[in-house]
Amino acid sequence: MSAPVPAGVPILRLGNVLVTGLLDELDDKTARAFTDELTERIAADGPAGVLIDISRLEIIDSFVARTLSELTTTARLLGARVVVAGMRPPVAITLVELGLALEGVETALTAERGMQALGWYHGSQPPERGTR
């Protein structure tokens, strides 16, 4: 694979978590470039987790679903855990009807919950369990 083209999708590093998000205007080329860039960053930074916020996605078709599945597997092979956060209700219903359950992909209701799941807390001390 040649050097990835910057996808125009920002990838931030927060502690040992890479945070990124997908926009609805995602075309195939951007999606591929994004996959490549994220993979490179995971290999380079060695994060424990990757959070992909998809709350802006108005549809997920089989191409985007496959992109998410492949990213999850790739990241796992590189030692990072991926959480996909913020899927909208209509998108979830449609995906299920499409027959795509995104097996093996961890999900979280919001980006914040996803970050908590990845062990990243706002502030220096983790909050006490069960108080939220």
Binding site: D61, S62, F63, A65, S69, E97, L98, G99, L100, A101
Partner: peptide, 19 residues
């Protein structure tokens, strides 16, 4: 295709039909 393989999908036609 789309139905059984889930992530594979050469076609996505089966999925489209269900929608």
């Amino acid at each position: 295709d789309g139905y059984t393989t889930g992530a594979g999908l050469g076609h996505g036609l089966g999925g489209a039909r269900r929608l």
